[in-house]
Amino acid sequence: MSHHIVEFKNVFFRYPDGTEALKGVNFRITHGESVGVVGANGAGKSTLLQHMNGYLMPTSGTVTIGDLTLTGKTKREFRKKVGIVFQNPDDQLFMPTVFDDVAFGPLNLGMDEASVRERVRKALGMVNSLDLQDKPPHHLSSGQKSAVAIASVMAMEPDILAMDEPAANLDPRSRRSLISLLKTFKHSKIIASHDLDLILDVCERCIVIGGGAVVADGPSAEILSNKAFLEENNLELPLSFQGRS
């Protein structure tokens, strides 16, 4: 299953205004792994994620998935392999109804009507939102929106699921159900968040980004319990550890 290996090699990225957002990022994620990318605001998490399907191209260094290297030409291939769930579901759900939105990707893949309907049913079923399919997104609660946003990406059946701050706008209950939902996915997952409890719950491995580079990479339970290290990187112990220390 070598084709699901994601590798960043010495990736640098500079925004047009001169901001150096990534300064030599290196990591490798293998098939089926669930990885959290944590770091304070402005650390470069979103920038990193946007390299995973070619919205942003490394200023230098390489991004590969399997034997495919990210270039202008392979962008579209990358986008089929990596599904990104964006931070704000309102930007992700751009079609007028939930059904249309989830069907958007499969239709673009050129699938016939019956298979599209099947995909939509499956994807919405996966996030327990089948009953929402005729609703317009603006009638949904934020928890429902984020579930449907995930479904709309899952309907593409990507090999790798990448999420940017998936729990940022959720109330505690929706956040809980998102966490249990994520645990059921067998995909390779890359989740960027400063919600360390979520990462601890969902991801066995964790990469800490600071100042545009990887400052730690290892088992979540280990890294996220190191109070001194986290504080050094403007992060706080997950609540589940705070009681014990």
């Binding site: 946007q50 399907n53 919205y55 579209r76 986008r79 089929k80 599904g83 990104i84 964006f86 704000n88 930007d91 992700q92 751009f94 249309d100 069907a103 958007f104 990707g105 239709l107 673009n108 893949l109 009507e113 599209v116 309907r117 709309s152 990406v153 593409m156």
Partner: peptide, 22 residues
Amino acid sequence: DRAERIYYAMLSRGFHGDIPSL
């Protein structure tokens, strides 16, 4: 800015100029 983000979201789901609908 929002239009830009929406456009990215569309690209990530295979958009290439046509808005398909059943």
